[in-house]
């Protein structure tokens, strides 16, 4: 099976405290640690496991800039054989629909049986996968937590629904699936692995290469625009305990006993 996985480089929220910049119009990006968007990494692992069973190759693609090559390399070190970078100044300011349009053009350049995305990007909105499927007229399923390859171009999949319940369906190939975290255990990638794939060329396509014009992508085409970032104020906020560790622990024990009752 030929599989394409869409991946994105994002600020890693488990490594960073996300803060506003001085002007208040963006997050402070100077010292941010970036990494692969977490569910995208699970998606690549899933693709590799499927390809290992069925044969075929795994390609990874990102819409971004040269800086984003590092996540392609990381996923290639996991075992993806092709890295594709879709980069063009004209892509800047694209909304979700714009990103999906760019990815659609890339899908049409190849021949894939299965396209995977992550459920949601850290700075995203769980939209690109579903949009891409609709543009391609492929069946779609979100929040996928298991994939089994069936005969005659079908998959059996489970989706995560409310309360930890799971919905089982059958889906025709080619299709687009958005992958949820926890579906597998992504393999470890070390510096050595990344160095080993450092010299493999990454195919790079611009807007014209993909047959895209500025009416379809970038700022001009965006129907949805982020105006600014701000820090929300919800509720009244916690009362912070300001004592030593021991004093704080003492107070917490008293609070728990009073509010919850110690049996």
């Amino acid at each position: 099976m030929e599989i394409l996985v869409c991946v994105k480089r994002v600020p890693d929220t488990s490594e960073n405290e996300i803060e506003l910049n001085r002007a208040g119009n963006d997050i402070e990006r100077d010292e941010l640690v970036y990494s692969i968007n977490e569910p995208d990494n699970y998606a690549v692992e899933e693709a590799l496991q499927i390809a290992a069973k069925t044969g075929g190759k795994v390609s990874v693609v990102t819409v971004g800039t040269e800086e984003d090559e590092e996540v392609l390399r990381r996923e290639m070190a996991m075992g993806a054989t092709h890295g594709i970078l879709l980069a063009d100044l004209a892509f800047e300011g694209s909304d979700g629909r714009g990103i999906a349009s760019i990815l659609k053009a890339c899908v049409e350049k190849g021949s894939y049986d299965l396209i995977l995305t992550g459920v949601q990007a850290e700075d995203g909105a769980a939209q690109v996968g579903g949009m891409l499927a609709a543009m391609l007229d492929y069946p779609f399923a979100s929040l996928v937590t298991s994939i089994e390859v069936l005969a005659d171009k079908k998959l059996k999949i489970t989706r995560e629904i409310e309360g930890g319940n799971r919905e089982v369906s059958e889906i025709d190939l080619p299709c687009v699936l958005s992958i949820q975290t926890g579906i597998n255990e992504p393999r470890y990638v070390g510096m050595k692995g990344i160095r080993a794939v450092q010299s493999i060329p990454i195919a790079t396509y611009s807007g014209p290469d993909l047959g895209l014009n500025s009416a379809q992508v970038g700022t001009a085409a965006a129907k949805v625009t982020r105006l600014d970032y701000f820090v929300p104020v919800l509720g009244k906020g916690a009362r912070f305990l300001g004592g030593t560790r021991e004093e704080n622990a003492q107070e917490v024990v008293e609070l728990v006993a009073a509010k919850g009752g110690l049996k």
Binding site: A125, V128, G130, A134, S142, K223, V224
Partner: peptide, 23 residues
């Protein structure tokens, strides 16, 4: 915006040629 909305809505916006604002 729940497990069903995430499944339905983004593709719907494309099919209706409408803007999409999630969550």
């Amino acid at each position: 915006h729940d497990h069903f909305g995430i499944d339905l809505a983004p593709g719907l916006s494309i099919k209706l040629n409408a803007a999409f604002v999630p969550d």
